[in-house]
Amino acid sequence: MSETSSEGSDGDRWVFYKDRPDWKDVTPVKQEEGPFPVVSIAYNAKFKDVYDYMRAVLKSNEISERAFHLTKDALELNPANYTVWQYRRLLLKDLNKDLREEFQYVSQLIDEYPKNYQIWHHRMVMVEWMDDPSMELDFLKEALYNDPKNYHAWKHRQWVIKKFNLFENELEYTESLIGDDLRNNSAWNQRYFVVLHTGKLSEPDQIRKEISFALKAILKTTLNESAWNYMRGLLIHTEKGVLEAEVVEFCEKLYASGNKSPHLLGMLIDMAVEGDDPKLDERALQICRELANRYDHVRAKYWNYMETIVKEKIAATKVADQKATNANEAASDVKNN
């Protein structure tokens, strides 16, 4: 790396800040290192130069056009520098900058660094300041097309949808993503977010519709945990939980067909624990052992633990039955006397 100049990204000759006449009045602030430097990064000359001046500006709190340009150079070298982003926001406000332009800028950067916390946060603040979400859903569609599981993009999407009430077409959107890849758990999570916030989880009919949606997906890929988890999530909001008739019937049928998906078997165990059929309890014990020894060996210790839960339930049922019998006997004693 040349010590005096290098090529800029736009092909122009890059001039170091220390060689710029319009920065002559500023004394650069070095990130000096002591006699025994640690985690010492081999910054190139451009990085050092830009950040020497960035630190000087931060120190003097300079509010100026040139400081604003400097933040751009600094962020190009390291878009994860939250201090520079924060200072840039201060400048945006104090210099009354055009936020539309800032939007273009941040969009480009997200394309380049889609997994950077700071850039996404900056975009969120811009949407807030402009009070304008009109570009967001299309922009996010693009970002999620490139990476359908991008956590930052989903966070931004949930935030903007909730803040500006943009739920209208979101259920269809999740459906199309699940259609593309029914193992895309982010899309399932988003679907849950939508049904939760649009009040669907308090309407039994709507829940039933969603359960059918999940069951269809499960039939296609019985090993797909995303669909099973989604269904479990819906059942939290039903009266009978895992004992919901439609689901019990579905699971029994699938089990009878010889399916050994650990997610199905796990459901059968939970159904036994919640239910009151001693025969199913016995079957659940058997299933726990099969999962531990064969169908889901990696989780053997977990299934052994579930076996103890089933056993506890069986024991508790026996105690309760005994108590009920005793009470009945006592009651008939009273009557007879």
């Binding site: 985690v39 990064i41 081999a42 910054y43 950040y51 070298l77 390291n78 994860a80 520098n81 201090t83």
Partner: peptide, 17 residues
Amino acid sequence: KSLMYLPESFSKLDASQ
């Protein structure tokens, strides 16, 4: 080695020292 010296690519982690 990393405790003392990190290559240039770590400039992107300059805000995570």
